[in-house]
Every structure is written in C-alpha cells, then in structure tokens.
Nucleic acid binder design. Structure first.
Lengths: 216, 216
DNA sequence: TCGAACAACATTGTCAACAATTTCGTTCGA
DNA sequence: TCGAACGAAATTGTTGACAATGTTGTTCGA
C-alpha cells in the first residue's frame, strides 16, 4: 500500500488519521477482520501513535472497528444476521425520514427525486448495476436530507457505514436491480404525492425486500 | 465534589475515567454546558489526562459531550427541538422492538410486563411520580431487551442517554402520569396479545404523546 | 473614554519513552 | 510424542513533557 500520508504536517494529525482510516475501511482497502496495529498505521499515515489511537477509539464507537483490551483493533466483520438487524433499523428510521420528507421537502427537491428516478430507470434499462447502485445510494441520502431530521440522519449514516461490504454483494446479484427499481419508484411517487403514510409504507416495503434479499 | 477516585490504580484507567464521567453526566452532577477541563477531570478521577481525553472522545460520539478543536469540552445541552427529534427516532425504533418482542418474548417475560403494569398502576394511584418514572424507564428497557434486536437496543440506549435532563421535567408534570399510564397499559396488553402490529402502533402512539408533552 | 494591538495565561493537541499485558515459540519432563 | 512451564517478542496502555492554539486582561494611542 502506498504511503499516501502528508509530509507530516503536525497540524490536526488526529483528524487526518481519522479521515484516512475511515476512508480506507469504507473503500474496502482493509480486508475484513484485518488487524490494525497502531504502530503500522501511525507510520503509514505519518502521524503519531496517539493520534491513531484517538481515531481508533472514535471508529470503534462508529461500529467500524472492534477493539479488545490489550489485544488490539480489527476491522469489524458484520455477519448476515447483524446486517439484517441493521437493515431493520434502517427500515423504520428511513420510513420516518420519508414521511417527514413528504411534508417538508420543497418542490425543487421533489423534482430532484423525479430526475433520480428517471436516471435509475435508465441505468437498469442499460444494464449498468454499478451506476444503479450509486444512484440508489444517492436517492436514499437525498430522502434523508430532505426530511430535515438531523438525529435520524446521523444514526442512518452510522448504520450505513457498517454495511459497505454487504451492499456490494447485493447490487451485483442478477435480477436484483429490476425488483428494487419498482420499489424505489414507488418511494419517489408517494413522496412526490406528499403522502407521508404511503411514503413511510413504501420505504418499509422496499427495505423489507432488501432484508429478504440479504437472507438469500 | 468529593474526590471519589480510586488510589490511582494504574490499571484500566481509561475505562475507569469513562465510567465515572458518564455516570457524573447522566446523574446530573455536571451542570448543563459546564466546561470539562481535561486537567481538572484527570486530577478528580485520579487518572492521567490521556485517559480523560480518550473518555471524552468516546462520550462525544455518544452525544453526551461536545468538543471543539482547541477550545475544550462541554456537557452537551439538548434543546427541546432536539429532544423532539430524538423522541421521534425512539418512536420508530421502540416500535420496531415492541413488534419483535410481541413475537419473540417468552411467556415468563410477558408475565414480567404484566407485573410491571400493575406496579405502575399502583404508583399512579398512590401519587408517587418518581417511582412511576423509574418503572416507566424499566418497562421500556424490558421491551427493548425482549425484542432481541441488539442493534436497536444500542441505538436506543444512546438516544436515551441524551434525554436524561428532559425526562426529569416531564415526569413531575401534573396530570402527566395519568395520561401516560393508559398508553403504557395498552403497550403491555398488545404485546401480551402477541400482536406485533398493534404493539408497534401502541408504542408509537405513546411516544407521539410524549412528543406532544415535550412541546408543552 | 474608547478601541485595537499586544502579551501573559489557560487549555488542548502532539510527541517520544516507559510499563504492563498478551501471544507465540521453545525447552524440559513424563 | 505430547503437554506444560518458561521466556522472548510484539503490542497495547500509560505517563510526563513540549508545542500549538485560543482566550483574556492590559497598555498604548487617538
């Protein structure tokens, strides 16, 4: 792995280490269950061990890293059962957000959702699962954002961080995009119709489908 | 404040500091918005500053303290708006738990809920709001626990930690226990009837009531 | 008297060294 | 040959000191 660290700035070292490490885990550069030795990371990022340590503590409470006393840190592996439990929480929280978004969103924002829906339809028609997966993620992020529910947004972003690895597997499954597309379009339609209850139901139906898919 | 620190164990200092500090905040020993100076806390708890620092970083991501670069830490103050937003999240997450508890709980556990319900009725009849508040808290904790949904439990415990100060105010409001009691009994009944949808609805109705009360 | 530059102070951020703990390989004995 | 005790290496936990940053009180000039 290349030493991409800055020339040892000395300024805001911890934040630098935190950002780099989080990105590395989220982008899958670190293998699951890989050991995270403080000294190695410190050298790799060009900061001191104390900064790495602080970053690891923070990542632990984000659920990305697992720390055991006197034993060290590992990239946390999320089992399928945990992924299901996490998605159940996403289900109700995103349902809350969708309901609020149906009420709170501006007309311009609703147009953005419509545009996203068309882009997703096109991606599926063109058979581009990666593009579709990106748009999918973007759609959910937009709905969260439009809800204005900052607490829920915070919780959801944390939960999503723990699912990076599972999301990949799901997107590439054959036939999956077709099924999920109609669910997504239903979410968009109900929000645009400014119907909170229907929007919540649509989001929950969609994520219930994701849970089924996770279980294979 | 008495120096309740151990005679400087040297072992697991950070965990000690973390526990003491969290307890102090949760028990209201620290005034809202009080400054938390690392040196003072270190001396108070009989640990080094690094341990206090680690504890503060962890408490920050729990939402109990607020940290600003080069400016220090404060006990985080939760505005009424935030308390409402937090309770909205609690509403959907506890709804999820109640639905699962209605399916997963054992018969013995359902009996525990029934017993709690009777105790709560008695506390209201006897006009003991503090006892009632404790039982209230206990009931919610039991339902969470019986759901077996560890992820939701984790999120809820964190959210509840941020509400300590608001909970007090709510419990002592005249007339509040009477209204909330019937809602709680409905929650218990629907779970004992093993009706997930009704249980979820009952919990959400109850917490919607709490939100109304929070808004005064 | 009021405002701005300045300096002293308080506090956090960073660092390198030391102590404690765990892990793993080795040796000794049955 | 197998198992347990032992010891060395690796790694984390802790400590005190130093550097960077923000804050506050003071002085000088208009």
């Amino acid at each position: 792995m290349p030493n991409q660290a800055r020339p040892s700035t000395g300024e805001q070292a911890r934040q630098h280490a935190l950002a780099r490490l989080r990105q590395a885990i989220l982008h899958g550069e670190m293998a699951p269950a890989q050991r995270l030795v403080e000294n190695e990371l410190a050298e790799q990022f060009g900061v001191t061990r104390a900064s790495v340590r602080a970053a690891l503590i923070e990542l632990e409470s984000e659920g990305l890293v697992e720390r055991i006393r006197n034993r060290g840190s590992r990239v946390r592996v999320v089992t399928v059962e945990e992924a299901v439990a996490i998605t159940e929480c996403r289900m109700v929280l995103e349902g809350l957000c969708a309901g609020k978004a149906a009420v709170e969103a501006s007309d311009e924002q609703l147009d953005q959702l419509a545009a996203l829906g068309e882009a997703m339809s096109k991606a599926v028609a063109d058979g581009e699962p990666v593009t579709y997966s990106d748009l999918n993620h973007e759609l959910h992020a937009h709905i969260r954002q439009f809800s204005g529910q900052q607490v829920a947004v915070g919780l959801l972003e944390r939960l999503n961080g723990q699912l990076v690895r599972h999301r990949f597997q799901l997107a590439l499954r054959p036939g999956r995009p077709q099924k999920s597309l109609s669910e997504h379009l239903a979410m968009i339609d109900t929000i645009r119709a400014r119907d909170p209850q229907a929007a919540e139901a649509a989001v929950r139906a969609h994520l219930a489908g994701v849970i089924d898919a996770l279980r294979e």
